[in-house]
């Protein structure tokens, strides 16, 4: 398997290393864990870990598109929270999961479009616009929930988080579908290729006729849509929506994108990289739990892995002569 190559190279350090390196990391961790615990190397456990990785991947997928396009979306966690709370409330009120799904996806997309508008029309840098949106969305969620938790959803809805189809957990199917969609979008469509160009050099992209503002709106809308979708899976999996549900997810999502080899400066990266990043981060937590390492060490180890990934990318870039 080869990594997706950006059409325009950048002088920045985060040039993607071959996917093989990341796959090798996954294999090494899996072999080590299998030696530690015989229960690790089972189909059931693989599905269990992939289901955990799928939740992280869904949040990170939309973020990957935005970052490749040269932007940043810090509002994904708060957006997820807002979508989760609103859709949970609608499902409880109407008893209609379909209405909840519509509210989550609509709310997520709307928040994403608002981010795009703030950046395009008011010329607010992406970091600031989405950081502001983080507080607004989280604030609305706190006000709406008033410290309460909404719980107990219909079985048909919970199937999307806790159910199985053909023996595989539904969130994994959703992850595969979203991954395939993003892969096709980035590699097989003109707009997808334009996103790489835009992320690598916005001025050049603009001069070559790429409608930057429209593309940006699309990317933030997709990021918001992904947050809405992730919200549904989270609520269905936990059978509860709480106002703190999305807040701890932002940094792990950024970590999954970076460990996956996507440059924070835009123009390069891949959705398969983010998938590998989500799996690696999930495996690390599983390994720390298996080794009985306290949670206080988890951020340290995760940070070390991110730094290692950055260093590997920088080394690969230097070797490639960038």
């Amino acid at each position: 398997m080869t990594t997706l190559q950006a059409p325009v190279s950048t002088a920045l350090p985060a040039v993607p290393v071959p996917m093989l390196v990341r796959l090798a990391i996954i294999v090494v961790i899996c072999v080590a864990l299998s030696l530690i615990s015989p229960a690790f190397a089972t189909i059931d456990n693989a599905l269990n870990l992939l289901r955990q990785a799928s939740l992280l991947f869904l949040v990170a997928s939309g973020l990957t598109l935005v970052i490749i396009g040269g932007g940043l979306d810090l509002s994904i966690g708060a957006n997820l929270t807002l979508c989760a709370c609103l859709s949970a409330s609608v499902i409880k009120l109407t008893g209609q999961p379909v209405a909840g799904v519509a509210v989550a996806l609509g709310c997520g997309t709307l928040v994403g479009l608002t981010n795009g508008l703030l950046i395009n029309r008011l010329k607010i840098p992406a970091f600031l616009a989405t950081f502001g949106m983080l507080w607004v969305a989280q604030g609305i969620a706190y006000w709406f929930m008033a410290g309460q938790v909404i719980y107990g959803f219909p079985a048909a809805f919970r199937f999307f988080g806790g159910g199985f189809w053909l023996g595989v957990p539904v969130p994994i199917w959703v992850m595969l579908a979203v991954g395939a969609g993003c892969l096709i979008f980035l590699t097989r469509t003109t707009i997808g290729r334009e996103v790489y160009v835009m992320g690598a050099n916005e001025a050049a992209a603009s001069l070559s006729g790429i409608p930057i503002a429209r593309r940006r709106m699309l990317l933030y809308a997709l990021s918001g849509f992904a947050a809405g979708l992730a919200a549904l899976i989270y609520v269905a999996r936990l059978n509860a929506a709480e106002p703190g549900i999305g807040e701890p997810l932002l940094l792990p999502a950024i970590a999954a994108v970076l460990v996956g080899g996507t440059s924070l400066f835009g123009g390069s990266g891949s959705i398969l990289g983010t998938l590998s990043g989500a799996v690696i981060l999930t495996l690390i937590v599983a390994a720390l739990n298996l080794l009985n390492v306290g949670s206080a060490w988890h951020p340290f180890v995760t940070g070390a892995v991110i730094l290692l990934a950055m260093l590997t990318d920088a080394f690969a870039a230097r070797r490639a002569g960038h």
């Binding site: 615990s37 955990q52 701890p248």
Partner: peptide, 24 residues
């Protein structure tokens, strides 16, 4: 059998328990 932090959180409680179920 094992003792792991779940940090008073629902998602961690779910995921740590999922791992315990696989382990034991």
């Amino acid at each position: 059998l094992a003792s792991q932090p779940a940090n008073f959180q629902r998602l961690l409680g779910l995921q740590v328990m999922e791992n315990f179920i696989q382990q034991f």
